[in-house]
């Protein structure tokens, strides 16, 4: 049992558990699944700066901080108690592409050559961490949700605007990963 838990979990186990979060949040207290709103609540709580978009009673949304805090705790438990410590398995095609950019560290789920405080001083590290993070925050709010709010919650509730958003996420991702990112990684 423990041995199975320590192996990477298959997609259907993850998919079923994530899908069940939708009814769990609804039944526990009428909450719709979503995470990117937390970024807005942080702005509203810490730097509202008299901007209308951040002037609302963020304390009513405090459940979302608890949810995000839980994610943090769950990731801690999984990473420190439920892992084998084996390197991440990556498809051979991606491995050979990344090797061309000098990326070969598979000890963590992010390439440590790109995601570190030192790599902030490199062009590609800065673009990936700072510009990438900015686009995540700007884009999710502009779109009104992220993968959880639109792709999972919105599609589960058969909302066509969420389908538009999900398709846009994927189009943007395909374009960046295949056309722009190779150039950024070679910087």
């Amino acid at each position: 049992m423990m041995e199975q838990i320590q192996q990477p979990w298959p997609w259907y186990v993850a998919g079923i558990l994530i899908g069940l979060i939708v009814p769990a949040l609804l039944i526990l207290g009428n909450k719709t699944f979503g995470i990117s709103s937390n970024l807005r609540h942080v702005c509203a709580a810490c730097f509202p700066a008299d901007i209308k978009f951040f002037k609302y009673d963020w304390k009513k949304e405090i459940w979302n901080f608890f949810f995000a805090g839980g994610i943090l705790g769950g990731a801690f438990i999984a990473n420190y108690f439920l892992m084998t410590g084996a390197p991440i398995e990556v498809s051979p095609g991606l491995q050979s592409e990344l090797a061309g950019y000098g990326l070969s560290d598979y000890s963590y789920m992010l390439p440590k050559e790109l995601f570190s405080f030192e790599s902030l001083l490199t062009v590609r590290g800065f673009v990936i961490m700072v510009v990438g993070g900015f686009l995540v925050g700007f884009g999710t709010r502009y779109a009104g949700g992220c993968t959880s709010g639109h792709a999972i919650m919105g599609l589960s509730n058969l909302q066509w605007p969420s389908l538009v958003a999900t398709i846009s996420f994927m189009v943007g991702g395909f374009f960046m990963a295949n056309i722009i990112l190779p150039w950024i990684l070679s910087l």
Partner: peptide, 23 residues
């Protein structure tokens, strides 16, 4: 949902993470 969606898609491919995984 289109413009923001595309921009988030760019960020998702760069960082390899949507907001949940960041936490």
């Amino acid at each position: 949902q289109i413009y923001g969606g595309l921009l988030f898609g760019f960020g998702w491919a760069l960082t390899g993470a949507c907001p949940g995984p960041l936490f």
